[in-house]
Design a protein around this nucleic acid. Structure first.
Lengths: 107, 107
DNA sequence: CGTGTAAGGAATTCTGACACG
DNA sequence: CGTGTAAGGAATTCTGACACG
């Protein structure tokens, strides 16, 4: 039960410059959303931020919500809800996988 | 018949620093393989190189071949062969798609 | 041929702050 | 609250070259 699959989509490899170009958001905004705990880039040894394509998607969602006048705090609440749902789905998936592995279930 | 799908894998978004870390190759080597026409990063307006995950895969292949004593020129020849094969496959695929679209063929 | 390195400049990124509101 | 900007420093990237071989 290891955890290092992490496809390209989740690899934190892009610096803030391209993220800004891809999303169309200013670097200021991107850093601010991090300050508000909406996004979590990794850091290199010397501190430059690294983002993944998943982060790009999250940023696009944030941008949409902000446009609709939603405040960062609200956005954060929405996101943690989704996160919980996903976690539940993942757990269910894992349990099914376990069952299949042990009992060789057929559909 | 448009052409802008380009998944994450093919998007040129990483600068040479992370590429070096991911592949374990020195920046010098990476730039040299470009000089030898084995790899083709894009450039930002001011000239910094941008690579994709596909490029990472290609670099790993190159690294293996170099280790085996293969010269860059030979590696290039090998790659163009594969490229041609792929192109043929793509053409075949496209033609089949066309046929299916026009005659609604069933398997 | 393939790769390391020192060299100097240009571009990137970082943080903390002031500003407006 | 969300975002722009000027500020100064540190880290990144670029090119052309010399070196060894």
């Amino acid at each position: 039960m290891s955890t290092d699959k992490k496809s390209y989509k989740d690899k934190k490899v892009m610096s803030i410059g391209i993220i800004s170009k891809i999303t169309g958001l200013s670097e200021r905004k991107i850093r601010y959303y991090e300050e508000r705990k909406l996004i979590f880039p990794e850091r290199t040894e010397r501190g430059t931020r690294k983002y993944s394509f998943s982060d790009v998607e999250i940023l696009m969602e944030i941008a949409n919500q902000i446009e609709d006048g939603v405040q960062t705090y609200e956005i954060k609440k929405e996101m943690s809800k989704k996160q919980k749902t996903q976690t539940k789905d993942d757990i269910n998936k894992m349990i099914r996988g376990q069952l299949n592995a042990h009992f060789h279930l057929r559909k």
